[in-house]
Design a protein around this nucleic acid. Structure first.
Lengths: 344, 344
DNA sequence: AAGAAAGCTGACAACGTTGTCAACCGGAAC
DNA sequence: GTTCCGGTTGACAACGTTGTCAGCTTTCTT
């Protein structure tokens, strides 16, 4: 049951182990005929290189470490977010012969710095993917950078794109949602803003204003209500918006939880969706497709972001080009059934 | 920025590297005074052992590999299931200095065998955790066993507990749900069965029958409707059950999707929950807490199962005792707001 | 007090790769 | 016929641990 080693392959192909190593790593400077001989030896023996040995010799593990805030602390509302990132990162890791290590941790925990230093020292990953909200915390970024491990941050909603960051265009796609509503014929489009500390959500208010302006609609403070990202705050804000004299025909909420709150309030007031009121959200949480009618929303491209970031890490470490520009991965509108033409 | 090595620690403590190694691995046969000296040297230098070197020398990686069916193929309905397993496995891995490798794969893919052989050969994990439904597929289990890597299977709903399997007691806790309903005063408790191919769901019908018998209630075929695990099938089955002459006062569905379907049907018929009808499900999916009123259900202990299984793998490999008995981790009732006393 | 047993400790060889550098080989240039 | 040079290849030393086994101390036994 002993696995064949590089020595076995070398003997079988009649070359030195170094040549086999060169073939494995696609280094050039190997004659085609030799390469072929080695490759068939590899196939004959069913050989696969031993990662541990490889990692030891090459001074870093072929491992990407995905660090995110521990969701089990809050009972899994963010499961979809994390699964999408995992799946994007995994896809790229596999293409390049890397494995993905997942490392959830809780930012409220004082030991988080020692914890991160621990994984880095033990596993020696080739790079670290740091997800929001951890990616916006100075201390954590500092700890990782101090270790010298290449880092790429996933930071949706950053104002300016920084180096080694993968961001989203929340402002742009929020404007896009306003365009969608305006195109349906809406003039009075309300907005429910989110928690002031949440960066991406802040960008969405700006995007809403951009959208109004681009569509030639006036911005009215009476059409903006403050929420805090929760279902309840969305419900309250909607009740307020819908009971004012000149009621909006569409409500755009800065996240899906609040949008679902809006739907609840509308139901309570006997306002039909989308007949009397169009509703739109942001995030495309799992619930968005499960409510009735299915919610029109915007999807942050978490999987694509993670793919980009992983690629930056792997190629950066391969090419000794650790510094790379930031990248913006565009979100997309998910038009479903809660938006339609205004009444009359 | 060079990390200290075991040699540095040895020099600093005035011992040989072997002694440091012994301290690191908690081997006995080290004098307390020596151990203390080494430990303080480790602390002084901020040393952490290099996993790659360790793995190479000890012939296996300190890695547990969690293999599950790829959810991104079906758009993430099972995100909660997977996150819970991950989080349980991670908890135990960390306690024992292991890392967790995640390896989703699609059983419909012909390459799955080569794929699994690949990870095993490359990463040389200390053990593999195989989640349902993959854990019940002969071919896949065979491929992993052929590699010689220790395997533990997570198989909810197995009839008989086998070796190296962590199972659940679906039959028992389903009976428990009937007890809960009977205790509230229900006599006419209906059941909606699930997809015949899904093992755990099959056990639940048996548990329902056990529960009736234990509570001295008669089993009536008219109170059992067939579903297929989907929301729609639950809805249809409920419409049928609720429109028959002598309507049940409680409906117990073999999974939560169908239970939510029941709630939908009741809403449509103007049947109040829990005033007119109690509803119970199984699985405790995320949606269960998001519907109104929150759904009474049973929770399969995925995190605890994964903890158990990981422990079996780690201790099995440590003690050269690869064969271990199977274990049943009990599920629990999640009593929420959809169950209450029957009307009158 | 001597010998035996147990308790500690260390020297050194794995483990299976990659990195470094020297050597070889064939053809072009002189 | 040398010399030189780029393209190929291989010998051998890392990499940082663990495993084996021998040797040195203690402690126990008589």
């Amino acid at each position: 049951m002993a696995q064949p080693t590089i020595t076995d392959v070398a003997r079988h192909a009649g070359v030195s182990i170094k040549t086999v190593s060169r073939v494995l790593n696609r280094e050039d400077g190997v004659r085609d005929s030799t390469r072929l001989r080695v490759e068939s030896a590899i196939a004959d023996l069913g050989y696969a290189p031993n990662q541990s040995a490889r990692d030891l010799a090459s001074r870093h593990a072929h491992l990407i470490c995905l660090v995110y805030d521990d969701p089990s602390a809050y009972e899994l509302p963010s499961a979809g977010y994390i699964m999408r990132m995992q799946s994007g990162a995994l896809r790229v890791c596999r293409q390049h012969g890397y494995e993905l290590l997942i490392h959830p941790c809780n930012y409220r925990n004082k030991d988080i710095h020692a914890d991160l230093e621990g994984v880095i020292r033990r596993a020696r990953p080739a790079g670290i993917l740091l997800a929001a909200p951890l990616s916006n915390m100075r201390g954590i970024v500092g700890t990782i950078n101090a270790s010298g491990t290449p880092l790429v941050r996933l930071s949706p909603g950053l104002k300016r794109v920084q180096d080694r960051v993968v961001a989203t265009n929340d402002r742009e796609f929020s404007a896009g949602m306003v365009h969608h509503l305006a195109a349906l014929g809406h003039h009075r489009i309300a907005f429910i803003s989110g928690h002031p500390k949440h960066k991406a959500v802040g960008q969405r208010l700006l995007g809403y204003q951009d959208g109004l302006e681009q569509c030639g609609l006036a911005f009215s403070p009476q059409l903006v209500a403050a929420g805090d990202n929760s279902f309840c705050s969305g419900r309250t804000a909607a009740l307020q918006l819908l009971q004012q004299p000149c009621r909006p025909t569409a409500i755009f909420a800065a996240n899906d939880d609040m949008a679902v709150g809006v739907m609840h309030a509308a139901h309570q007031l006997g306002v039909r969706i989308p007949g009397d009121l169009s509703v739109a959200g942001c995030d495309d949480i799992t619930l968005a497709q499960q409510v009735f009618p299915p919610l029109t929303t915007t999807r942050q491209p978490f999987a694509a972001m993670a793919e980009q970031a992983t690629l930056m890490l792997i190629q950066g470490s391969a090419k000794d080009r650790p510094d790379q520009d930031g990248v913006v991965v565009p979100g997309s509108l998910q038009i479903r059934a809660t938006t339609g033409p205004p009444p009359e």
